[in-house]
């Protein structure tokens, strides 16, 4: 899963820009699959999918729109999804994001985590496989 060192994060949001460009071919931090918030003197926090075992988001979906593969990655079936947001509420880590209703969950870029390549301070970095 994606790891985070808040001491190193400069809150520049380059990771979110990169994510939106990779996934949507558009620069729009609000369409990223990860989120970072912070207000000094508090340290920033990262919100992104932790690839839970028995994930609450999948269980919460009444329409079977979410599924998890053997690597722990959650896939969204946008045909089945009604954008009800129950998965958003169910995630204990606030890591299921939404843009104008559309559910956004980190898919790890096949374990490559391309967002980390935009980080100038190595504050986010790929962690161990689940």
């Amino acid at each position: 899963m994606l790891r985070f060192n808040p001491e190193q994060c400069t809150e520049c949001h380059a990771c979110r820009l990169r994510c939106s460009f990779v996934k949507e071919e558009e620069y729009n931090p609000d369409k990223a699959r990860l989120s970072i918030t912070g207000k000094w003197p508090e340290l920033p926090k990262l919100f992104s999918c932790r690839l839970c075992k028995d994930p609450d988001c999948v269980a919460a979906c009444p329409f079977d729109a979410l599924s998890q593969n053997e690597k722990g990655i959650i896939a969204v079936d946008y045909e089945a999804c009604t954008e009800c947001g129950l998965c958003v509420d169910a995630c204990p880590y606030d890591a299921v994001l939404q843009f104008k209703g559309r559910i956004l969950i980190c898919d790890t870029c096949d374990g490559e985590y391309l967002c980390t390549k935009a980080c100038s301070t190595d504050a986010i970095f790929p962690g161990e496989e689940r």
């Binding site: 001491e7 400069t10 809150e11 520049c12 949001h13 380059a14 820009l17 000094w40 340290l43 100038s120 301070t121």
Partner: peptide
């Protein structure tokens, strides 16, 4: 102390 950056900036 901490370093902070403008939007998307690697110079921070």
């Amino acid at each position: 102390s901490r370093r902070v950056a403008c939007f998307g900036c690697p110079v921070h």
